[in-house]
């Protein structure tokens, strides 16, 4: 055995456990989901699963509820992530300033991340509830009518976004803050010496240097938000009408309540494809480090 092929063999042996884990935990489930999506497979049905061809996917194309849930998901992800990013960014800068007491505040601000999403949903459900919610109590204190936070189309969406923002803004802050802390001081000094104003330093130096962190946090949050189901489960069940029915909730009700695994898998597969495509386009468009 030549030295080179021996090295290659060693590499193969060393890498194979990781590959195996990847195949077992990632590739197999996805492949199996594709397999299920091509079959009539209902746990509730007495009939055994049978091949369905593209039936489930053809069904998707004429399913208004599916398109509605896509639209709702898109709205939720866009609104939520944009607000989290702006707010998280601003907070990161506040925490980065060397004011006293901010360290404690910064640590406290991480609490929402550590809370279970289901609990967050429950807490906001109670706070926004129209009959005994504390927020509506405040609203009535100011002489206003109680607001239908969870039962009016726009307000319900905003309420879900609010809960998500409450929980995940600290995460954005954490990442941006860490990135800010790792920016070398001398670059800012160079900027000042080169005659840039504070504003120009922010836009020409700080922001571009934070770009990798921003992109990472954006992708993580967008994908995460796209999968969000707990808040819907606790707060609106997708209502009113279908105003807050995000795709994962539709998939959940189809797969786990109606037990129509085939159709749910078809939706899940479509969702994976859409998310992957979106992430790709996104990464190419925004993350391309080439041009300035």
């Amino acid at each position: 055995m030549s030295q080179k092929s021996e090295a290659r063999w060693t590499a193969t042996v060393l890498v194979s456990p990781a590959v195996l884990v990847l195949v077992l935990l990632n590739i197999f489930p996805i492949a199996f989901a594709v397999y299920i999506s091509l079959r009539h497979w209902s746990l509730a049905s007495p009939n055994p699963p049978r091949f369905a061809g593209d039936f489930n996917f053809a069904e998707l194309l004429v399913d208004d509820r599916f398109f509605n849930s896509l639209w709702v998901s898109g709205t939720f992800v866009t609104l939520g992530v944009v607000i989290q990013l702006l707010l998280g960014f601003a907070l990161a800068f506040v925490f980065n300033s060397k004011l006293r007491g901010l360290d404690t505040l910064r640590r406290l601000s991480l609490l929402p991340i550590m809370t279970m999403p289901l609990v967050v949903g429950l807490v906001w459900f109670y706070m926004l509830n129209e009959n005994f919610g504390v927020i509506n109590w405040f609203v009535t204190l100011f002489g206003s009518e109680r607001l239908p936070f969870l039962t009016e189309r726009t307000l319900a969406m905003l309420s879900i976004v609010l809960a998500d923002v409450w929980q995940w803004t600290p995460f954005v802050t954490l990442v941006i803050f860490a990135a800010l802390q790792s920016l070398p001081e001398y670059v800012f000094e160079a900027g000042r010496m080169d005659g840039l104003t504070e504003r120009e330093i922010f836009f020409r130096i700080t922001l571009p240097m934070l770009r990798p962190a921003i992109i990472v946090v954006l992708i993580i949050r967008a994908i995460d938000a796209f999968r969000m189901i707990e808040l819907i489960f606790m707060m609106t069940k997708g209502g009113p009408g279908g105003a807050t029915e995000v795709l994962p909730w539709y998939i959940y009700t189809t797969g786990f309540l109606s037990l129509d695994l085939g159709y749910a898998a078809a939706m899940a597969v479509t969702m994976i494809i859409l998310v992957t495509l979106a992430a790709q386009v996104f990464v190419r468009q925004i993350a391309d480090p080439g041009k300035n």
Partner: peptide, 23 residues
């Protein structure tokens, strides 16, 4: 019947749109 949940879900989803004034 095994399909009871499907019936309940279809009604629960469609009727909610009626009560919300969407349909």
């Amino acid at each position: 019947v095994p399909e009871i949940q499907k019936i309940v879900d279809a009604l629960g989803t469609e009727m909610h749109q009626v009560l919300s004034g969407d349909k």
